[in-house]
Amino acid sequence: TETREFDNEEEARKEAERLRRKGQDVQIRKKGNRWELRRT
């Protein structure tokens, strides 16, 4: 599992969408005042 953190939700969602188009399974969750993007 690979995780990346983003400062805002929009960036996290854009990156998640990009990875999903490549066929990756991605989850986003709020972590304090940041957003965590998890690739499984």
Score class of each variant (00 low, 15 high):
residue 1 T to S: 12
residue 1 T to A: 12
residue 2 E to S: 11
residue 2 E to M: 13
residue 2 E to P: 09
residue 2 E to W: 15
residue 3 T to F: 12
residue 3 T to A: 10
residue 4 R to E: 08
residue 4 R to A: 09
residue 4 R to L: 15
residue 5 E to H: 10
residue 5 E to W: 15
residue 6 F to G: 00
residue 7 D to K: 06
residue 7 D to R: 06
residue 7 D to Q: 06
residue 7 D to H: 06
residue 7 D to S: 07
residue 9 E to T: 01
residue 9 E to D: 02
residue 11 E to W: 03
residue 11 E to K: 04
residue 11 E to L: 06
residue 11 E to Q: 07
residue 11 E to T: 06
residue 12 A to V: 05
residue 12 A to S: 01
residue 12 A to L: 02
residue 12 A to C: 14
residue 12 A to W: 01
residue 14 K to Q: 13
residue 14 K to L: 11
residue 14 K to V: 11
residue 15 E to M: 08
residue 15 E to F: 07
residue 15 E to S: 03
residue 16 A to I: 03
residue 17 E to Y: 08
residue 17 E to H: 10
residue 17 E to W: 08
residue 17 E to I: 10
residue 17 E to L: 10
residue 18 R to N: 08
residue 18 R to L: 11
residue 18 R to M: 10
residue 19 L to G: 01
residue 19 L to H: 03
residue 19 L to D: 00
residue 19 L to A: 04
residue 20 R to S: 06
residue 20 R to M: 07
residue 20 R to K: 08
residue 20 R to A: 07
residue 21 R to A: 13
residue 21 R to G: 09
residue 22 K to P: 03
residue 22 K to F: 12
residue 23 G to F: 03
residue 23 G to Q: 02
residue 24 Q to N: 08
residue 24 Q to I: 15
residue 24 Q to G: 06
residue 24 Q to S: 07
residue 25 D to A: 12
residue 26 V to F: 09
residue 26 V to H: 03
residue 26 V to M: 06
residue 27 Q to E: 14
residue 27 Q to D: 08
residue 28 I to R: 02
residue 29 R to C: 15
residue 29 R to D: 06
residue 29 R to V: 15
residue 30 K to M: 06
residue 30 K to R: 11
residue 31 K to Y: 04
residue 31 K to G: 02
residue 31 K to F: 05
residue 32 G to R: 02
residue 32 G to P: 00
residue 32 G to K: 04
residue 33 N to S: 06
residue 33 N to I: 03
residue 34 R to C: 14
residue 34 R to F: 08
residue 35 W to H: 01
residue 35 W to Y: 04
residue 35 W to E: 01
residue 36 E to A: 02
residue 36 E to P: 03
residue 36 E to T: 04
residue 37 L to R: 02
residue 37 L to S: 03
residue 37 L to Y: 00
residue 37 L to C: 11
residue 37 L to A: 03
residue 37 L to N: 03
residue 38 R to H: 14
residue 38 R to A: 12
residue 38 R to Q: 12
residue 39 R to H: 15
residue 40 T to F: 10
residue 40 T to H: 09
residue 40 T to P: 07
